[in-house]
Design a protein around this nucleic acid. Sequence first.
RNA 1: AGACAGGUGGCCGAGCGGUUGAAGGCGCACGCCUGGAACGCGUGUAUAGUUAACGCUAUCGAGGGUUCGAAUCCCUUCCUGUCUGCCA
Length: 414
Amino acid sequence: MIDLKYLQNNFDEASARLQKKGVESNTLENLQSLFIQLKEANAAFENARAEQNSMSKLFGQYKQEGKDIAELKAKVDANKEVMAELQEKAREAEEALYTVALAIPNFPDEGVPEGKDEEENVELRKVLEPRSFDFEPKEHWELGEKNGWIDFERGVKLAKSRFSVLRGEAARLERALINFFLDTNRAKGFEELCVPFLNNAAMLQGTGQLPKFGDDLFKIEDEALYLIPTAEVPLTNMYHDEILSEKELPVLMTGYTPCFRKEAGSAGRDTRGMIRQHQFDKVEMVAIAHPDKSDEVFEMMVQNASDILTALGLPHRVVELCGGDLGFSAAKTIDLEVWLPGQNKYREISSISNTRDFQARRAKIRFKDGKQNRFVHTLNGSSLAVGRTLIAIMENYQNADGTIAIPTVLQRYM
RNA sequence: AGACAGGUGGCCGAGCGGUUGAAGGCGCACGCCUGGAACGCGUGUAUAGUUAACGCUAUCGAGGGUUCGAAUCCCUUCCUGUCUGCCA
C-alpha cells in the first residue's frame, strides 16, 4: 500500500509519480478525501469514546461511595447511542478508504522510463551472442513432441487446457534445473526454504495479489486458501507482521515451488506450447532489506539471475520495464529475456522487482531502527522460471536432426 | 475428523466484572558499585492511530455480543497441546 500520509502532504508530487503507472489524479483526490474523512470520523468517535470512558470511571466511583447514579446513567445511556452511530460511521469510512487504497499500485522509482506498455521497455544490455544455425531452428513444441519430452494432450486430459506433462529426459531436466538453480542461489547466500503451496488471503493481500487480482488465482473450495501464483507470496510473507532486528538484514531466501495462475487476462496468448501454463515450476529469490541497501541487493539479484543464464549458455537481454508495464507492487523491475531461436524472439524468463516498502506496509514487515520500527524493503525475482528455461534449452541446444544437447553445467545433475 | 484443556507483554506467569497497558519473575538497556567482571542496588523497557503539545483512542489469538464499564461473562472462529480416529 502507498503511504497515505505522504500522499496527503505531497499530493502533487505523488500524483505525478503515479501518472507513470496510469493512475488518474481524481482517483488520488478521492483517496485523499477518504483519508481525511476517516481521520475526522475517527476523531469524533474517539472523543465520544473518551467521554464514555471517563463517565464509566465516575460510575464506578459513585457506586463505591454509595452516591445516586440515576442521573449519570441517563447521560451515559444517551452518549452510548451517539457513540454507536459515530462508530458505525468510522467503520464505514475505514472500509471506503481501504477499498480504494488497496487497489492503488506502488509508486514507480524516479528513474523508471516513461511508457505505456512493453513496447517502451528499455533494453540495458545483451549477454551472449545468439548462435547461428545452418538449418531452420524448430519451436519447442515441435521438438517436445518429436523427442517425446512434452505430452500436451495428456496434460489436457488430466486437467484442462494449458496443462502439460513432461516425460523422461525432459522431466529429469526439469528436476536438474531446479537443483542447479537452488544450489546457485544458495551459494550466493540465499537460505533455501520449502514452503506451503497454499496460502491464506491475508498473505496474498500482503504481497498485493488480493484484493485486486483474485480473478487470476485458483481458490480452494470450502477453504480460505489459494494456490500460490509465485513463491514470492510465501517467501515474502515469512515475516508477515514481524519486527526484525537490523542486524538480521538483509534476509535472503530462495525456494522452489510450482506456481498456479488462471491467466485470466491472457486468453488467446501463447496458446501453443508451454510458454504460458496454468501450472509451472519456478525458483524464486526473495530479499528483505534495509531501505538504504535495497538497491544494492536488487543489483545482486539481477546479476545472479543473469549469471545463471550465462552459465547455461543461454543468450539473453536485460530490460528495464517502463512505468506502464510495471506490475502492481513494483517500484522498479528488470526483466531478463532469453533468446528463443525457434520463435526468433527474446521472451521473458525472469522478472526482478524492488517493491520498496509497498508490500512491507501491507504485510507489516518492519525492522528495529534504534528505538523506532520502520518498514523494510522487499524484493523478489525469479532465478529462474524452470519451464521457460527448459524451452530455451530445447530451442538453443537443438541439433539438425531434432535431438537436444544438455548444457555442460547440468550434466552432473542428470 | 471427534473429545477434553488452553491461548495474557521479548520470554515465563498472575489477574477471572471497575482507577489494569496489565502484579511478579526472567531477559534486555542505562547508571552506581569494581582494577575489570559476576553478584548486588537503582532506573527504564509493547505496538498502532491521532494531536503543535499535554493528552486521547485502540490492542490480553481474531471477530461479534452482554454491561455504564470486559483480559475477566456469553457466542462464533482460528491456533496450540493431549487422547481417539485416519494417513505419508
